[in-house]
Amino acid sequence: MKTLEPSYYENFECIGDRCKDNCCTGWRVIIDKSSYQKYEQMQDEFGDRLNSNLRKVENSENDEEFAEFILDNNMKCPLLNENKLCDLYINKGSDHLCHICTSYPRIVTLYGEVAERNLSLSCPSVAQLLVDKNEKIDFIMNDEIKYNKNETILMVNKQYDELYNLVWEGRNLSIDLAQFTEIPIWKRLIIIKLISDRIQIRINNGEIGNEDIFIDELKNELISESLLKALDDIEKPNKILKINLVLMIFEFGKNHGMGNKKLTAIVENIKMLLDKSEDIEKTLNYKEEQFDKYFKMREYILENYIVYNLYNLYMKSLINKNLDIEIFELIINYSIVKLSLLATWDKNNEKLTDDEIVDVLYSLSREMEHSDTFIQSLYDDMSKKGVNTMGHLITMIY
């Protein structure tokens, strides 16, 4: 058994009540079965308070999602006190915290014989790590798996045989490409999409094996001077269409319960871009050109964001056999983040602080990463409307 982790993993540190947000507010707090049984045995006054604020999850077949805290009208955990501290931790200690409260934002997913560690970007401190890391993200493989008490395996999957090697090599190639700074980011994303399309064809056709030869052929074909020049001939997409696609996604999300306060404010910033000029297309083109120049020295943040998504999403295709939806999510996430940063920059008189970048990254992640059904529903909806074609995705990227 081995473990794999990104180079920023060990740098994470929870800052508790100094955090700009709170992981005990705004979403469900799930309780594992063993913790629930431990809480049931508490016979003191605090135990009575604790158990009166718990309920079992109906029809749950997963011991990790056995029960949940009953949140108040503000979606706040009943054990979060006015000082933004946990009364369970204060009264009973860390040993009584449920798995999710102990491990978040750490994630450990077991694929075959490799346990992959990551951190959820929905935590502001994790977003800060990506903003601060102005060097290439490396990945560290350890030969012996060693879990600490703050880690919980999210899912355990069987060995995936040769399919694992195909997806693994595809992800390695895509991550290397994402950090290849000699190529503009929009070109990198298009090539990453083309790579995933070729891998998806092999998955669909059951063409498993000879991964090294296949990956070498992809490199020669897709990371070539001829293709890069061909991409230059792509007609610059309609910026209004890009914004309308993003707003359509936000509206879809709102109808599915998405919309924390920070994200709602970001949506309003995007809408303001459409109200500033009679010639919207010309204005948006100019604004994007100016923003790209302004953000050039911090473009590594967008690269880090792409690498984070590739590492977080790519191997999920082993489970659903659908790499297309994982790359769809990457492109959607990138496009929304880029446009949100531009809109925030524009509202702030063409200035953008690291703190505002952190807000964009973690606010979006809070809505997109913690729903098992949202991306699938969005993917199906955009497919039905015919707006998830390669042309539409290029519009989102370019």
Score class of each variant (00 low, 15 high):
4 L>V: 04
5 E>T: 10
9 Y>D: 13
11 N>T: 06
15 I>C: 07
22 N>C: 13
23 C>Q: 11
24 C>G: 09
24 C>L: 03
25 T>C: 08
26 G>A: 10
28 R>D: 11
28 R>F: 03
31 I>F: 00
36 Y>C: 07
38 K>E: 15
42 M>G: 02
44 D>L: 09
45 E>Y: 06
45 E>T: 00
45 E>D: 11
52 S>D: 15
53 N>G: 06
53 N>D: 08
53 N>W: 02
57 V>K: 02
66 F>G: 00
68 E>I: 01
70 I>V: 11
72 D>F: 01
73 N>M: 08
74 N>D: 15
80 L>P: 04
80 L>K: 00
83 N>I: 09
84 K>A: 11
89 Y>S: 02
90 I>H: 15
92 K>A: 12
97 L>T: 05
98 C>F: 09
99 H>Y: 02
102 T>M: 15
116 E>D: 10
116 E>R: 09
116 E>M: 05
120 S>L: 12
120 S>G: 14
122 S>M: 11
123 C>P: 14
124 P>R: 05
125 S>F: 14
133 K>A: 01
139 F>D: 04
143 D>F: 05
147 Y>T: 10
153 I>M: 10
154 L>T: 11
158 K>M: 12
158 K>V: 15
160 Y>A: 08
162 E>A: 10
165 N>K: 13
168 W>Y: 15
169 E>Y: 04
169 E>W: 00
171 R>T: 09
175 I>Q: 02
179 Q>N: 05
179 Q>G: 03
183 I>K: 13
184 P>N: 03
188 R>S: 09
189 L>Y: 07
189 L>F: 03
195 I>Q: 01
204 N>V: 15
207 E>S: 11
213 I>R: 08
214 F>I: 01
214 F>S: 07
216 D>W: 01
217 E>R: 11
219 K>T: 07
221 E>G: 02
221 E>N: 11
222 L>T: 02
224 S>H: 11
231 L>K: 05
232 D>Y: 04
235 E>K: 08
238 N>V: 13
240 I>E: 09
245 L>R: 13
250 F>Q: 12
255 N>G: 14
256 H>C: 04
257 G>P: 05
259 G>Y: 01
259 G>K: 03
259 G>P: 01
264 T>F: 08
265 A>M: 06
265 A>P: 04
267 V>N: 12
268 E>V: 08
270 I>C: 04
276 K>R: 10
293 K>Y: 14
294 Y>I: 09
297 M>C: 12
299 E>W: 15
301 I>N: 10
301 I>T: 03
303 E>V: 10
305 Y>F: 07
306 I>S: 07
308 Y>D: 08
311 Y>P: 08
318 L>C: 06
320 N>V: 04
324 D>T: 14
325 I>N: 06
329 E>V: 03
329 E>L: 10
334 Y>C: 07
339 L>E: 08
340 S>R: 04
345 W>T: 06
347 K>W: 02
348 N>T: 08
348 N>G: 14
349 N>Q: 07
351 K>P: 02
362 Y>R: 03
362 Y>S: 07
366 R>F: 02
370 H>W: 03
373 T>A: 07
380 D>L: 13
382 M>I: 09
385 K>T: 00
385 K>D: 08
387 V>Q: 00
388 N>W: 12
394 I>C: 04
